[in-house]
Amino acid sequence: MGRGKFVERVLFFLALSSIGSLALITFFIFLEGLPLILHTGLKDFVASSHWAPTKGHFGILAMIVSSILVTLGAMVLGVPLGLAGAITLAEFSPERLKRILKPTLELLAGIPSVVYGFLGVIWLVPLIRIYLGGPGLSLLAGSLILGIMILPTVISISIDALTAVPQLYREGSIALGATRWQTVRRVVLPAASSGIITAIILGMGRAVGETMAVIMVAGNALKLPTSVLAPVRTLTSNIALELGYAAGRHREALFATGIVLFVIIMILNLSATLITRRR
């Protein structure tokens, strides 16, 4: 066997092992979590809000709702800001500025989430408590922090989508007498739409899966939120908060929470893949 062939084999096995670990993780989450869902019944698990795992109540509805609300909140902040940033960088900034700003934005993705959470607790939470009321640790705080955290994802994938639009389209549009803004709005954005939607969905996935920052700023209360100032607990927070001590059914219930999260993330990622493929 030649040297090239050998290297090829090694690389193939390395690639396989990363897929293998993903498969193992999936397998174990289901192995550990399914018994509880079978025990309590899917309906009582996802349609009840009564979570008292040491007393035999395993309803995660409030957390599913909270996860969705926090993520939507993050989208409301992150998508317009991210899109505006991406359009400015891709279409309206000189090359030099872009070369400085894009890596800077990507640096934002490298900041550990605990740092975002800490800044949230120190600055954002007291501001909310003093000026808007409530305990400060809230749905709003979680959404704002997550909205900032998804910016790098949304911006860099959107920029890639925008720059992938052929220059010919822009030249054609401008030759027809359209202004630059009209060109961006009517030609470039529609042409890049599937890439931009992918950016938004991947940002959503990041928001749903984020844990540490949310635990620190969202308050983790188990009640269904009645306002944006109410504290909430997301699915990820639930797992990370209670994992340390959980045993028996309680532990299974946390893995089962992981299954629900897994399904949500899978749906998001699959739809991102499908939308990209349609291009």
Partner: peptide, 26 residues
């Protein structure tokens, strides 16, 4: 959080078999 020893002790000494309100921050 549920499962914490401090919470368990607090529940057994204060709560008299009643559950802590879900509105509490955790």
């Amino acid at each position: 959080e549920e499962g914490s020893g401090t919470r368990e002790a607090f529940e057994s000494m204060v709560m008299a078999q009643q559950e802590i309100t879900p509105a509490a921050l955790v």
